[in-house]
Each structure stands twice: as C-alpha cells, then as structure tokens.
Amino acid sequence: MKASSDAFVRRLLLAVACTTVLCLLVIAAFIFKEGLPFLLKVGPGNFLFSSDWRPDSGHYGILPMLVSSLYVTFGALLVGAPLGIAGAIFLSEFGPPALARVAKPAIELLAGIPSVVFGFIGVMVLAPIIRGAAGGPGLSILAASLVLGVMILPTIMSISIDALAAVPQSYREGALALGATKWQAVRMVVVKAAGSGLLAGTILGMGRAVGETMAVIMVAGNAVRMPRSVLDSGRTLTANIALEMGYATGMHRQALFATGIVLFVFIMILNGLASSALKRRAGKR
C-alpha cells in the first residue's frame, strides 16, 4: 500500500518536473506559429537584410534593428566584461575577504533593480552628459551600451567569482612555489584555469544585453535608421517589438513575432555556447 502510493508520488513529481520543458516547447511553438508563416512568405533574406522598415506600406526589413542590437550588445560587453571580470579577480584573489563579503551582495543588488529604473537614470543623467560632451542626440547607442554594461555586471561578476573559486588551491600554491609573484600566478594559472567559466559568464551577460528591452527603449533613441556612429540613435530588435506591439495588427504583428523568432534563436545559440563552456570546465576537473 505504502509502496504503491510512493510510486504514484514519483510519477506525479516526474510530471511536475516536465512542466519547464513543456513551457519552453509551448513558448517556442506559439512564437514560431505566429511568426514563421510570415518569415517564409517575405523570405528570411528580405526580412533580415533589407533596411526598409515601413510596416504600413508592406516593407519589413529589420537590418537596422539587427545592427543596432549588435552595436548595443558589444558596447555593453566592452563596458561590463572588463569591469566584471576585473572586479571578480580582485575580490576573489587579492582583496580582503571582508570586502568580498560586502561587495558581492552589493553588486548583486544591481541585478534586482528594475530595468526601467536603469533606463530612467540613463535618460536623466547619462544622456545630457553625452549630449554635452560629444554632441548628437544624447539618447544613443553609446548611452544604451553604458546602461546595459552596468546591468550585465552582476551576471558576469557572480559567475566569474564562482569560476575562480572552483580553481583548486593547489594550482596557486604550485605557481607560488615555482617563484611566481601572486599576480603572475593569478594571470598565468588561475585565470587560465577559470577561463571557460569566465567565458560562460560573459556569454550569459551578452544574452541579457541582447534581450533587455525597457531600459534600451528609454535610452537608445529608437530611430529606425542604420546607425552610423555610436552617438546615433538606434532601435534594437527588442525595442522594435515592444514599441509596436501595442498597436500592430495582421502582417505587422506577424512581423513582430518573426522579430521574436530571430531573438529567440539568437538567445538559444548563446545559451548553448555558455552551457558548453561550463561543461568543458566541469570535464577538465
């Protein structure tokens, strides 16, 4: 009696555990169901590589958005990755442990602050500074890159700290015993050993930057135009969906779902890369 009820619980829990996979499949199915027929009709080439986006007259080219998304994402990485990784190295290898105990939760606070608040600070503080110092509209690819760079800091930093902590203490001791300075030991041994973990953190940070929406809408300017410099206004893929979803119908709405497909595929590729980087680390040990 008891054993059979236990078997029932096991089956029930297995069913519950499958909900995440089911959710993922349903999400993918509905995004593709709405967007794929459109994508096939217009042709992926025309959709991805035309820079003419005028939904009201039937022109659906997302190249400017694709390019803006790439600019903003790499800009965010240029800001967030060096800062996050340098911070992680300092806190786990050089700084006093007491500092790490305070600094880690403080930086993780950034992950909890709503993205709209970051966007607002970008508008109120950063954009006027950029406008004054470098010219242009202020609300720009540069502003978006800086804001996103800060937003992805906690992701990159906490994964990097974990990766550094996973490097066996004996590696450090071995390098120091061979006469290396602490910095040489960190640079040549520890950082190398933690390399794939640092890479995984950076890729996941990149995923966050690609997918961020509200903060980018507020600071990037949103002009549907090929950006010529980082001081230009730009509209990302995510911003394009969120700005037009409110009123889009018919083909136009399908085009936004097709934009969602592009985003979805991009994120899945990044996640795959990150998890294979993490696996490589696990395999090495």
């Binding site: 995440t20 999400i27 509905f30 995923g207 997918g211 969906i241 979803m245 969602g260 985003l263 996640n271």
Partner: peptide
Amino acid sequence: FGTDCLAGIPSIIFGLFGYIF
C-alpha cells in the same frame, strides 16, 4: 536543459508569448 533555456529567455519574449497564449 529546459530550465536553463527558460532562464535565458528575454522578458519581451515572455511578453509576446503571454499575449498570444
């Protein structure tokens, strides 16, 4: 794997899905 993928999906995709579903 499903859990990791779900964690990486951007919120605007959730918005699109929630709206259509």
